[in-house]
C-alpha cells in the first residue's frame, strides 16, 4: 500500500530545481500528486504531494542528492490525501493598499468572521521600495454568496484598503 507525503522544498532560486526533483522522484518510483511552486521574494518554494511505497526516510534519501547539490531545504510530512475532490470557489476577493503590517491579518480575519473559507491566496509586495503596495487575490467559498461579505468589506475599506468582491460563476459546458 502506498503512502502520501507532502514534500516542501525551499532554496535560492536557480534553473532546473523542479526538473531535478521530479527526475529523481520518478526514477525512484515515487509519483507526484498535486503541486504548487511559487517564487517568493527571489526564493524558490514548492510543495508537492508525493506517493510511493516507502517511508519518509526512504523518500528523503531519494531527494537528498538533488537537495544537497542545489543547496535546498527539504521537509517531508506524512499526509492523508484525497484526489478528485476539489471544492469550487464562489467568490474572488481582490485587495490592495499601501503596505503596512497587519493587512493580511485584517483582511482574512474580517472575511473569516463573515463566513469565508479561503481556497487559494496569493499576495505580493508591489509598487516601489519607497512606496510599497500590498496586493492580495483570494479565491474562496462563502455559504451564502458574495453578499454575505458586504459588511466585512465596508469595514476593510474604512481601514484604508481597496477591497473588491466578485462572485465566481463557473461556466460548465
Amino acid at each position: 500500500m502506498s503512502n502520501w507525503y507532502m514534500v516542501t522544498v525551499v532554496g535560492h532560486d536557480q534553473p532546473g530545481i523542479v526538473a531535478g526533483l521530479s527526475r529523481v522522484l520518478s526514477e525512484g518510483g515515487w509519483g507526484l500528486g498535486e503541486s504548487s511552486m511559487a517564487r517568493l521574494g527571489g526564493n524558490f518554494t514548492i510543495m508537492m504531494m508525493v506517493r510511493g511505497e516507502g517511508s519518509a526516510s526512504d523518500l528523503a534519501q531519494v531527494i537528498d542528492p538533488v537537495g544537497t547539490s542545489m543547496g535546498l531545504h527539504v521537509h517531508i510530512d506524512r499526509i492523508q490525501a484525497e484526489l478528485h475532490q476539489h471544492p469550487e470557489p464562489n467568490v474572488q476577493i481582490r485587495v490592495y493598499g499601501a503596505d503596512r503590517t497587519g493587512i493580511v491579518a485584517d483582511v482574512t480575519g474580517d472575511l473569516a468572521g463573515a463566513g469565508l473559507t479561503i481556497l487559494d491566496l496569493n499576495s505580493e509586495v508591489s509598487g516601489t521600495g519607497d512606496s510599497p503596495v500590498y496586493v492580495i487575490v483570494i479565491d474562496g467559498f462563502v455559504e451564502n454568496g458574495a453578499d454575505a461579505l458586504d459588511s466585512a468589506v465596508q469595514l476593510l475599506n474604512k481601514k484604508g484598503l481597496k477591497v473588491d468582491v466578485e462572485p465566481i460563476d463557473i461556466l460548465v459546458g
Binding site: 478528485h84 475532490q85 476539489h86 469550487e88 460563476d169 463557473i170 461556466l171 460548465v172 459546458g173
Partner: peptide
C-alpha cells in the same frame, strides 16, 4: 477572464 469547467473534463476548473 472567467472560470470554466466542462462536462468532458471532470474535477477541474
Amino acid at each position: 477572464t472567467g472560470r470554466e469547467g466542462c462536462l468532458s473534463v471532470p474535477d477541474y476548473t
